[in-house]
């Protein structure tokens, strides 16, 4: 598997080739890599960077900075919401309470991602897991462990807050519980 930098280098090299070809031949048409069929290479670029409002769940992110993971809970029906949400559709209200997750749970399932999205290629192969927390709701996030071969459904796990490197933003992770 090529690294992110290698792929970027290959893509840029290819784009330069197309630009040159367009200049020389007058058209951005290249042969398909497998069949040789003529392919027009889009001249326009579109970059997406989504701007996502988090005002109503800001407490969650404030919590991460303090090393805490919060869920919301409906005070009327006792329903936990994770990921946290500011609205309770069950009672048509927005009076949810913020509660810190105790952080102990049981692993339900997991996978290890080998073929990663381009925007994740700079991380080592990672385990994504789903755990049922003792409060009764599930959390999906990365599971970090020094012993990946010991990861099994049913094992006890705990929730921790760490910075995601190399970017440095706070995120939450599952880890195997240390036997007490």
């Amino acid at each position: 598997m090529s690294s992110k930098e290698e792929i970027e280098r290959m893509v840029n090299q290819w784009l330069r080739f197309v630009e040159e070809l367009m200049r020389n031949e007058g058209l951005p048409i290249v042969p398909d890599e497998k069949t040789g069929d003529p392919i027009w290479v889009d001249v326009r670029d579109m970059r997406f960077k989504y701007l996502i409002p988090v005002k109503r769940i800001k407490k969650f992110f404030d919590g991460l900075r303090e090393g805490k993971v919060y869920a919301t809970k409906c005070p009327v029906k006792g329903i936990y919401y994770f990921p946290p949400q500011a609205d309770c559709p069950a009672c048509m209200d927005e009076n949810v309470e913020w509660v810190e997750i105790k952080g102990e749970g049981e692993l339900i399932t997991f996978t290890k991602i080998f073929i990663k999205p381009f925007s994740f290629m700079h991380y080592p192969d990672y385990i994504v897991a789903i755990a049922r927390m003792d409060e009764g709701f599930n959390i999906l996030c990365w599971l970090s462990t020094d012993n990946p071969e010991e990861v099994k459904p049913g094992m006890r796990v705990k929730l921790v807050v760490k910075r995601r490197e190399p970017e440095g933003f706070f995120s939450y992770y599952l880890e195997p519980s240390t036997p007490s």
Partner: peptide, 28 residues
Amino acid sequence: GSFFWEFEHFGLTFPGYYAMYATAYMHE
């Protein structure tokens, strides 16, 4: 799936989602 809570933070892939079903099924 749920973009912000699955992809943005945890880089799930399409096979990744079904792989979690496979893990649970094979274990059970």
